[in-house]
Every structure is written in structure tokens, then in C-alpha cells.
Design a protein around this nucleic acid. Sequence first.
RNA 1: GGCCCCGUCGUCUAGCGGUUAGGACACGGCCCUUUCAAGGCCGUUACGCGGGUUCGAGUCCCGCCGGGGUCACCA
Length: 517
Amino acid sequence: MTIRTRFAPSPTGYLHIGGVRTALFCWLFARKNNGQFILRIDDTDQQRNIESALEPILDGLRWLGIDWDEGPGVGGTHEPYYQSQRTEKYQAAVEQLLQNGFAYRDFSKPDEIQAERDASMKSGGTFTYSRRWMAENDADVRRYEAEGRTSVVRLKMPREGKLVIDDLVRGRVEFDWATEQDHVIQRADGTFIYHLANVVDDQDFEISHVIRAEEHLSNTPRQIFMIQSLGYCLPAYAHLPFVAEPGSKTKLSKRKLDKYLKNADFKKLVDNGTKIASKLGLKNDIDTFNPVVVDFYKAVGYLPEAIVNAMAMIGWSLDDKTELFLKPDELINVFSLEKVTKGAASFDPAKLFSFQERHFQNRTAEEKRDLCKPFLEKAGIKIDDNKLLKLITFAADRIKVSGDILDFDEFFVSADKLQYDAEAVIKRITQPAEAIPLLTELAAVFEKTEPNNWQSQTLHETTQTFIDERQIKINQVIHALRVAVTGKTIGIGMFDALELLGKQESLARMARAMNGV
RNA sequence: GGCCCCGUCGUCUAGCGGUUAGGACACGGCCCUUUCAAGGCCGUUACGCGGGUUCGAGUCCCGCCGGGGUCACCA
């Protein structure tokens, strides 16, 4: 049997991190087993303009490298892949259920059935619909319609016996049919409810394994009832633990950004992102610029492989030591549903960042350059490839996400445009009495250096000689020098910075600092 | 409230009757050091509770407690 899994997003306009995890596991399982991964669009309840709401989701999946064998953009033998275009199939299924007595037309009014629901809720029991407005024959239909009632189609669920599900993640799960309700499958306006569409499509697409988040577990009985009533094949089920909030077991939600910001790690992630975004002139939109949404990571310059790696470790692990998977293929090779954990797993921003860090460290300087370059371009900064490569080499592990390259913007401006950190200038140049005289002397020494000797190591040696002669410590001059040349107290190695800037630029900056910035 | 699921360091997890309960992230300390990162070394911290079963329980059973999901003419 061919393994076929599917991911079925609704066109909501953004790709949620929890959705990514579900899609990833579906994809990994299919790839691992030489199967197929299908993308289906659940737009049964959507307005017409789904294209713009779908594109960010497809983009996100593509960016992460989660490719689909059938679905939007690639087609396939089971077209169409949009539920809104598959209504004849749903209608046929509803007719079949109706004809075989597994569903009925219900003419109750919303407040009537709600009253029954409230009553059973009040008495503390399970709600069981009285089926009082169920049409048992054509005469009933005509009578109810004469009363001006409209109907929905409801499932005629069993009211005794048990359902046992052998879930690939959760094991044996039992439900009493009596606690299940007569769920609506077709609305009064003729449109279809997700559960019906889902069952019909999974059958039509020959889905072998339904891998989805845990919140669907309690929907499973009604779906199995439909599958059995329609004579379909039962797929295997695997209900994944959902991705929870940082430090909580509650489901992660895009709308709770304010709350998550109280988490220090989460805030750090956002702050770093916001810093980069402001330099790029991106807008701070909760729908995209939010660590719960994949676009955020793309915008800030995370590596898709790092996100995939981090997502894979939420609710899954290979063993007690392996957790770094630099390439998705490495993950595919070892993935299995048996290793999925049962408990809800919190999204840990710090851990995700750590994966990013380790993945990025693993890239060559040339790869990092190509990754960082678009960020400079977006910020309107022009720099030649060789200089950028040099900067990236000097910056080493200080760059954690591609957008961090913008932290080094002091190397992209001329001396007269350099922004000085006022506090740093006071602390390192203005205040220490020795700073400016030493800087002046050092500048005179540097002046004598041949331009083609203007290299990190040479400059280091020159400076070493300079301090040895004066019997001072390097600390006494280097802090002032750093602020003079870069405008800030932190940054890459001092002599690397000088080399990168070149003789003329370095001396111009020193001169500017000595003259009070 | 009904039904269902879950419960090992702060977090992600390993563990599938006998372990000094392991790893990672985070955190703390030390080292390195021209700043900031990175790196190296060391360290603090966990089996929710109570009963069983067993020579022996984090591992099996029961109860409790706690957390979560779901109960729509949303998906």
C-alpha cells in the first residue's frame, strides 16, 4: 500500500507554527516511507478571495522545503484540491447517507435545539438530541416546510456501543457512541461542514494516514461513523500533541502575542526581530511579524532548516543524544511516528534560537555572505562581495540570523556619516584624560603604515609596540580606539575592524573622534 | 459540567521492572579575552500525590490531584 498523507490548511492568510509542525510530520512520514504528501485547501467556509489568503501559507511551506506531490500549483490526478470546488462529491455523499438512513433532515430551529442543549447541560449529562424535528419521510418534510421551517442534514449517530480507535500515537482510545451527537454535515444554505468534506476527500485522495493535531481526536468518532456508513476504507490515525505556549500547556495562539511578550525568551526573539525589521522598513503587523507565524522567521533571516529542525523536536525525538539535523534528509531517514510523544509540548523560543545559531555556525563564510546580502540590499546598503565576505569572516559567530548583518552598518558609511553612541564617547574618549592624547599619538604611528600593510595582524603588532614603548596596557587605548573608529563599544576584533575600513577611513574616523566627534 | 487526552529538571526530552534517573536549551560560576559574541571546564534543578502488584517501580494496576482538548449550521 502506498503511504499517502495530507495537510489541509484553511486559507487564513498566515502559516501558524503549529500548522508547520503538523505539516512537517505528515511530510516526513510520507517521505520516509516513499509515499506521497498531498496539500488540500479547506475552504468550505470561506469567502471568494482565497488566493491572497492562501499564498502566504504556500510560500511558507515552500520556504521550509516542505514540498507536496499533489495540490495547488502542482496539480495531480485527484484534482481539484480546493474543497470549494468539490461540492458535487459532498452532495453525493450526503445523498448516500440520507438514503441509507445514516443521516436525516432536521427541521429544528436554532433556538429549539439550543434549548435542549442547555437543558442537558444544566442537568449535568450528555446532550442527546430528541430528534423531535427529524423528518422521517416526505410527508414530514412537506409538513415542516409548510410551517416555514428550513432544514439541515444531521448524522444519525449510533446511541449504543463503543468505538475503539487504535491511534498510532495515543494507542487505544475508546468512545461511547451514546456521548456523540447528531452533528450537522450540511447547512441550511446547502454548504457542507468540514467533517463531511474531510472524510469524502480523504477517501477520494486515497489518504492512508491521517496525521493531525490532537484537538481533532474528539472529532474522530463522527468521522469514522461517516467513513463506515459510506463504505470507505478506514485510514490509520495519528494524533499529534499540539504545540503549546511557552511555559504553559495551552495551545499556542497568534492572538496572544502580548501575553507571550512577558516571557523573556519570547521577548528576546521579538526584540531582535523588531530591530532588524525597523532597519529594513518592514511593518510590525501581528499577522506576519509574530514568532507564532512563519513569515517572521523568513523576514528576519532564520534558516528554514533550523526552523524545521526545531519544529521536529517538538513532540518528537530520535534518542537521548541526537537533536541536530542539519539537513531535512537527515530527519527523513530517521523519522517515525512511534517516537512521537503524547504530552503537549511548549514552543521554546530560546531553543529555537539555539538551533538557528548552530545551523548558522555550520555554514561557510560564502554561504553566509549570500544569505546576508539580500538583507543589506533591502536596507539600501551597497557593499562589494569581497568586503562583505571579509566582514562576515571577522564577525564570525556574532551573526546569528542573516538580518544581524545590519548590526554592522557602521562599516558601510563614510566617516562623516558615522553615528556615534553618545554615552560610549563620554565614557571612552571624553572622560579619560589619557584617551585623546594617546589616540593622537597612535594615529601618528598608524599614519606611517604603508597602505598595503594595513592588515589586522600588522596593526596589532604596531599597536603592541606602541603600548610596550609607553609601558601601558592595551586596555588604556583600545577602548577609545574602538569607539573612535566604530562609534560603539561592542563589535568585531579591533584590528579586524581597522583592516576592513582601510587606512584612510580609519584615520578619518580617529580624527573625527579626537575633534569631539 | 459531559466526553476524551496528558503528567520525568524552568523548557524539549531519553527511559519501555534493577540506571549514581542520561542528553539538549536556559540558568549560575570559572577559564580564555581589546569589547561583544563564540569556545572550554564545572555546577544547581525532575519522576504530581496516595494506595497496591513485585525481592525490586519513573517504568505495571487502581484512585486522587493537576493541566489541556473538545462539546457550532468554524476548520
